[in-house]
Amino acid sequence: MLLPQPRGPISHGVVRLLKDDRDEPAALTGGDEGDLQDDDLQLALWMLFELHYRGFADVPAGREWDLDLLRLRAELQERLEQELRSRTATAVAEALTVPEADFPERLTALIDAADGPSVAGYLQRDATRDQVVDFMRQRSIYHLKESDPYSFVLPRLEGAPKTALAELQYDEYGAGQPHRLHQTMFGDALEGCGLDREYGAYIDQASALTLATSNVASLFALQRRLRGAALGHFAAFESTSSVPCRKIARGIRRVGLPDVVAAYFDEHVEADAVHEQVAVRHICGALVEQEPALAEDVLFGAAACLAVDALAGERLLASWASSDSPQGESSLMRAAASPTSG
């Protein structure tokens, strides 16, 4: 993947530093709608995190540990974490006061109480073929590195939660069969839609919230301090997948896309029914048993996942409702460029 097009002063500053074109990092400014919907900030953070995953063909690998870049990343991370903490404070406080509940019950109650808009329901019943393809394009940003963030958490755990996370990741990574690797299955699904399966191919079309979805996972998973939040995030992600995937698979078949596209979502109906239980009980439940002080962070991570998902779903549905979605251009990008359209 090559570096994306900058979207403002922060991402422009990051691109210049990545290319070793020394310059002072840009002053940090934010949009009116908060950092989660700030295209410039989310893209900058996404590039900085990406150095720890597959990187960019036009950036020297050594820049992963460049001090100026790390300093900027720390500032952006701090902003994102603060916004997420303030957005989720009520949900976390409520989950902590559920009477006489064991931890998995608290976590499940928090996840069940989330009430985001149903993108899956819309895809199942109403979406056009172009909108389904638009959805796949946005999803490609995360799903081509699906579950990779949580692998960074493994060495920070010990005992039962480590075993459970390794088991879950083994399944995500194809259970010994490369063609079952979920990232590869998503690539097959993209091809089935006539899209490019190459990692990062649609980064320039990714909306701020699509980038934020990926960034929040990296924010938690790359910091040992936030290991509890990373695993809570994973649990919420897995717990809100099985039923939506069933609906999405139906929508894909309804608009006449090939079976290989639906196959990815079919796999996730069954897989995530298992992963949800493993993540909530064997990973998060066991972690909190070992380290009770992490309970609040696990709930925070789950609530953050749900809050960003709800916001992303809301914006995606709004962009579809207001757009005539010309071919090749993501309706989300246009919505992001003119916030009043939502």
Binding site: V243, R246, V269, E270, D272, A273
Partner: peptide, 13 residues
């Protein structure tokens, strides 16, 4: 479940 014998998350509804 819609996919017996496997769980498909319907119990949540």
């Amino acid at each position: 479940t819609g996919r017996p014998p496997w769980c498909d998350g319907t119990h949540k509804a």
